[in-house]
Write a protein that binds this DNA or RNA. Structure first.
Ligand code: ZN
Ligand code: ZN
Ligand code: ZN
Ligand code: ZN
Lengths: 171, 171
DNA sequence: TGCGTTATGTTATATAATAACATGTTTGTA
DNA sequence: TACAAACATGTTATTATATAACATAACGCA
């Protein structure tokens, strides 16, 4: 598992037009599916959009409630989990293990790891990829003769913004 | 969060007398509690011993069954979760988020991170600390102005042993 | 011994995820 | 167009993981 060199700037942590952010993500998602021959159905698209609309990682049951609220009929867990599984397989979202929650991938078309900064105050999860770090990871694994299939790095603490403003703890 | 320099050799992956391994861990645990003024009760000791007896991370409910099997009376979830919370607070065990499971800490007396190599074939979880990696982690966080309270690195793949022997997948 | 603190027991419930099977939809092809 | 195979979604039930709230017991010290 290796990562592209990337300037470590958080999209989510800087002011931006999130609607454009979302529609761009949706378009990329359609391209990814088109390339892989997978079907981006309306359910899957709705799930992905809801995830992207949230700046914080979204739990499966929260997502389920949002889907139900938007569609008259009730929505059962398997519906949402199957959509999530699909999006995970396509690399369009990540699962954050320490939160049991899901978040949109900011660079789904490139093969990459699963690395997040998670703020305890505002709840934001910032995906990052950094070549130097990945090299250290790979070296460490190599010293143990360990071959990596997947990785999850979750750094829990306080984001720059919350440190500056004394951001209130998450509801 | 910083880690001591450590020769990357897995205790669990090399042949050893695990009974001595366990009793050493129990003794260290008593010292840690004694220093922090915490009470190492028999329940907590039993839980820690059971965790150490397993070479694989142990789930809370599995642990509950083992406790119940060993003690005539039934054991309820809060009993086990409170013991686990205590052991986590004392730094005597780690929680592996991707497995919802717990494992004994191999060096509880030093402040350190939560870094594991997890083998999909044999289920072993190897704790590691590596200064170069930690430096990269700290640098990455610094570039985002992010302050780290806790970290979890979980590398999932195949251990050296299983690669050599084609180890069977976990039950 | 008595009192405050800490630990454990007990019951109920919350939260997260999956199994198993039925029904609907799409897609390609005869 | 009709049909079949593959794929996606609906539905019901259950399993797995974790916590809330309150009762009782044990401990540690005055
Ligand atoms: Zn990503
Ligand atoms: Zn924040
Ligand atoms: Zn440790
Ligand atoms: Zn292995």
């Amino acid at each position: 598992m290796s990562s592209p060199k990337q300037i470590p700037t958080s999209i989510a942590s800087t002011a931006h037009n999130h609607d454009r952010c979302i529609s761009s993500a949706m378009q990329t998602a359609r391209q990814v599916c088109s390339r892989s021959g997978a079907r981006m159905t309306s359910l899957r698209e709705n799930v992905l959009r809801l995830i992207w609309q949230s700046h914080q990682p979204l739990g499966a049951y929260k997502l389920m409630d949002m889907l139900a609220a938007a569609s008259t009929r009730r929505v059962a867990p398997p519906t949402v989990y199957r959509a999530l599984d699909f999006l995970l397989e396509q690399g369009l979202i990540h699962r954050i293990n320490s939160l049991n929650a899901f978040i949109g991938c900011t660079h789904p078309s490139t093969r990459h790891a699963n690395n997040f900064l998670i703020c305890k105050a505002c709840g934001i999860a910032i995906e990052f990829a950094y070549q130097g770090l990945q090299t250290s990871i790979d070296q460490t694994a190599a010293e143990f003769g360990f071959s990596i299939d997947a990785q999850s790095i979750e750094l829990i603490g306080h984001c720059a913004n919350c440190q500056a403003t004394g951001g209130a703890p998450q509801p």
